[in-house]
Design a protein around this nucleic acid. Structure first.
Lengths: 340, 340
DNA sequence: TTGGCAATTTAAATCGTTTGAGTTGTGTAA
DNA sequence: TTACACAACTCAAACGATTTAAATTGCCAA
């Protein structure tokens, strides 16, 4: 039988109340008593029962992190960062993967409604939050990346439109004029924002928008490969492609390699996200970095702040994105290139 | 105030005991009573408090999963599979990453000793388990992959020695005689087993073992690249390389590409693990598959079985490994090739 | 009417903490 | 001496469920 606080108290010759305070609120007891209790606890190998504690104080020091899936190279860095931040603040995280499992988010609703977690971190964007909080509006929630619309919740995200703009600007600055776009999952807000950024930057750089140059890659490798094949089949193929993710850029580049089209000699690519697959591809994919570790950190901090009742929680945190030049881009053939 | 069981009981006009049974042990109450309690629960939006329940029944239905890090492409599939299996059995997973965080496993010891989790799944092999159970030997633990030595715990693993043997046999069957090995982290049991498999298969295939052909890649890309450079600098470089992981194979292949050495025309590679980075590399890396999803599944099942007191828990489960031929291998130049 | 029996239901203890209110004892001021 | 403040500690009531043992009910046969 594992020792309880009352065993410790008995051993130290004090009441359980005093034992409790000696261990978790040391200032409230006299020096000698504190020492006696601590010695007693050590000598019998006492460990606190966190479940009992949670029941009493009505907090679990546990967060639920919902991520579509961990196989996607986008998420590991974010998950790790959330976990680290939470750990440092004394919180554990329960992970849930919502895309591959049959039941999706609903499978985890219980944990929230049943009071097993203090708060919720959602990385799978889109629809509503009530399906996950089970209609308990008092559970703190922080969203990462794609906004939840109804009701709105605090969010940590990046400027996705800027991603499209930076990518296009970079390619345009190298003299490319026929710049294609392979877009992400159409139901994702970030994908449509990246698309919007592409559109606006094309205009701003005086390039004509050609709908034939815009293909849907659905954020999947296979769909991106198909899209690339369609682009290459055009009468006037693009000289550069902005892909809404590095993974799609890798897939598109593979298509080019299979056909003997040289990257970046014949065609340039810019991806997005800065995931490891793009980093280790050949050639390494130029990309617009999405600071996933930082997103995780900020989101975890924000959520913990909310749980602890801090007053000045920003409703929205937007982190900067940044172009990373790598080997997949080269000046357009015969173009006069502006200063990169 | 969220409703408790006693609210429900009051609403239904029964005692809490009956309410409890009506909801969680329906056979023990009369039909009408059961209906009345359920209606009452629904009408006031009652949700069980799992913390209270856990305290009473002395189980949390939560497992702790310790993984070195999630950034490594080896682990996501395993984590996902563990999570899925656990979810299906009604368990939640708390994840802990032990390699990058300062405190390592100790940081999570509390969760176990404090009774917040029912069992422990360890994927970071090596030393002892007591540092993680905090000397509570009664906590169920299952190890994945690398064995824990003191004290031994139930394990789900693969035949790592066979990995080395399959890789070498494959290369030998294609006529390669100078087969190099880039090995994994020297303190890892699986790495030394793969090495041992390489050694034994070299002998079995009548190939001479040349220590110059064995380099330590430390399971890191940079070290593997260094190792590859050393191999290429040899007076008689290898015609094939067995790398203890696909990641290292990718890094080694990158070195070859940088030097204009063609894979597989000039040199063949076999990796191990079957991680996505090898799958998407160019050329795709031939590998020996480690069924990570299956490992996660079996380990989770085993742990849950132990928790539930099933009698016939196997101390050791060894899952089969399998060669996956892809594009990184070709017959040795001018060799008479046996049937592959 | 009564006793016996099975089917339900209930009261109360329990899980192991935390914490507000009350008690004790000591020293100081009136 | 009385009164009061104060520190240190104890008592006992939570927290919200489960479960054992006991009590109630309904029903039927004697």
């Amino acid at each position: 039988m594992r020792p309880t606080l009352s065993d410790v108290a008995k051993l130290a010759g004090v009441s359980v109340a005093t034992a409790s305070r000696a261990l978790s609120n040391p200032d409230l007891v006299a020096d000698g008593t504190r020492r006696a209790v601590r010695d007693a606890a050590n000598s019998c190998g006492y460990k606190i029962n966190l479940v009992a504690r949670s029941l009493r104080i009505q907090r679990t020091n546990t967060l639920l992190l919902l991520v579509p899936c961990i196989d996607n190279p986008f998420y590991p860095a974010m998950v790790r960062s959330v976990e680290e931040t939470a750990l440092a603040a004394g919180y554990s995280i329960i992970v849930g993967f919502t895309s591959k499992t049959e039941r999706g988010r609903e499978a985890y609703g219980d944990l929230i409604t049943a009071g097993r977690v203090d708060g919720l971190l959602v990385a799978d964007g889109g629809t509503g939050v009530e399906q996950v909080t089970g209609g308990r509006p008092d559970v703190p929630v922080v969203q990462m990346l794609d906004p939840i619309y109804a009701p709105p919740v605090p969010i940590v995200r990046v400027d996705d439109k800027m991603i499209g703009e930076l990518a296009v600007r970079h390619l345009a600055s190298m003299g490319h004029r026929r710049i294609a776009h392979i877009s992400g999952a159409p139901n994702s807000v970030s994908a449509t924002e990246r698309h919007a950024g592409y559109v606006s930057a094309m205009g701003r750089n005086g390039l004509t928008l050609d709908n034939d140059l815009i293909k849907n890659g659905h954020s999947r490798r296979d769909a991106a490969a198909d899209a690339m094949k369609q682009l290459l089949a055009l009468a006037a193929p693009p000289t550069a492609v902005f892909c809404a993710s590095d993974s799609m850029a890798c897939a598109a580049m593979d298509v080019c390699r299979d056909r003997g089209i040289h990257v970046p000699g014949d065609i340039s690519f810019v991806g997005a996200d800065n995931t490891p697959d793009g980093q280790f591809a050949f050639p390494a994919v130029s990309t617009v970095d999405v600071p996933r570790a930082d997103i995780g950190l900020r989101a975890a901090e924000k959520l913990i702040g909310m749980i602890r009742g801090q007053p000045d929680i920003a409703q929205e945190t937007v982190l900067p994105v940044e172009l990373r030049r790598r080997a997949s881009c080269a000046p357009a053939r015969g173009a006069a290139v502006a200063a990169a």
